[in-house]
Design a protein around this nucleic acid. Structure first.
Lengths: 251, 251
DNA sequence: CCCGGGCAAACTGTTGACAGACTGCACTTG
DNA sequence: CAAGTGCAGTCTGTCAACAGTTTGCCCGGG
């Protein structure tokens, strides 16, 4: 189950986070879960109204998202949710493979007992989810597993980069990545990674980590080929504005 | 000589870039070349006045820099140029090693003749700079070499991540990284990388790339130990404001 | 002499308003 | 009928102003 993230109190949030950062968080969530699909235009006024704030914080938030690659902006024209090509998606997979391999290699031999237990528990959680055919649970545990790998093996920066790349990947297409067969294959690879780390063999661990992401890339390509899905979305280099000009009938 | 980057005309710049992006570029340059040292507080009003703009664009720019890791912000207190610890610097080296190794491996066997020529020319430029004991020239060519490596082998994203990490590294301490002896050693490693790529051996290329950055890390540690330099700079978690309270004499 | 309350200043966070740019439709013209 | 021009509307870019908070100094008390 997803833990209810109690976190800081509402008052604490208001005291420590600025509106802009909260708006940024909300926009990021909206982009990642598809409420703002790739290619969508971000209307500042509308967003500000919808979120109950002024345009200033919205602009600041969008600027942050632009830097993180989720949004592209064109002067005097607006900001758009970035859309990436299939080729870019594959490139992202390659980078994630390199990062994961790096983290695994570094973890092999350096992992603490607690870290190994954590990873082991996650693999078991995924195994249980797979047997129960619970894709969302598997998905969540999978995220945690990779986050743990990167945190312990790649440090906060490695994790950050990995997650940013994952976010970009979400821009490609809205799609459930996990299917029953994939879960089995995927978790077997997880187990292989864990085994290599536990054994302390850096090179094997690296290869296992890279192979796992490469497997994800392969599965991605397979599902992608079967579902051409969304058409090459609105080009961010000059999309037409939606509602300009006269709106009411001429007469 | 550094080419004069003619680039787009002034009018073109004004038409395509917003003030916020220009301010961001300027702030980034100021941070990277040390005009805004690590730990320094960013006074919005002062910066706005100095750059001849209003506070809005400055705030947007700072928000972007925050996302890219050069700046940290605390609500109601201000933004500070980030300062990183020695441990973090070493971590960054490790990540750069992984990325460089990845790019080299990918380039081996996939490099075009033109790309090989480009890398070869850069190695020769560095060799010439080394013989002339021209550290700045070497430094520039070195940057180009690594940028070419990452561009051709890691794609735009790989390059971007690599450069962001390099920028973060600049936050650690202002220091000339290149010394005569280092240049010799460093360029020998460049040649080894190039040879492995040209030979098409991915694993050797990866090892050479990783070893080169590891060498940089070693050289970094060596110079670091000899020059403790700047004291552990102002903590970004609560530095005192400079000029508050009464300014003019009491009576 | 040390410590806590109070006051004043500066700065950030946020908002509202204004000017410029771009878009799209309707109309005129060859 | 096709192409060019004018016009209105919306939206972004930028600025100036207001409110809240934090910070530092001053002063009175123990």
């Amino acid at each position: 189950m997803a833990k209810i993230r109690q976190g800081p109190s509402a008052l604490e949030i208001v005291r420590t986070r600025s509106l802009a950062s909260l708006v940024g968080q909300e926009l990021e969530a909206m982009i990642l879960d598809g409420r703002l699909p790739a290619g969508e235009r971000l209307n500042e006024q509308q967003l500000a109204l919808r979120l109950g704030v002024s345009r200033g914080p919205v602009r600041e938030a969008v600027r942050g998202l632009e830097r993180s690659g989720l949004v592209v902006s064109v002067r005097n024209q607006g900001s758009y949710v970035r859309s990436i090509s299939a080729a870019e998606a594959l490139e992202i997979y390659d980078l994630r493979a390199a990062l994961t391999g790096f983290a695994c290699a570094r973890l092999a031999g350096a992992a603490t007992a607690a870290q190994l237990r954590e990873l082991e528990a996650l693999v078991q959680r995924m195994e249980a989810a797979r047997e129960a055919d619970a894709a969302p649970a598997y998905y969540a545990a999978n995220l945690e597993f990779h986050a743990a790998l990167l945190t312990h093996g790649g440090g906060p920066r490695g994790l950050r980069i990995y997650e940013d790349l994952g976010n970009e990947l979400h821009l490609f297409r809205r799609r459930a990545l996990v299917e029953p067969e994939n879960m089995r294959e995927s978790n077997a690879e997880h187990a292989a990674i864990l085994a290599a780390i536990a054994a302390g063999d850096a090179e094997v661990a690296r290869a296992a980590g890279e192979a796992h992401i490469a497997g994800g890339k392969r599965r991605f390509q397979a599902t992608d080929a079967s579902q051409p899905a969304a058409r090459p979305p609105v080009r961010p280099a000059g999309p037409r504005r939606t509602g300009a000009g006269r709106r009411e009938g001429a007469g």
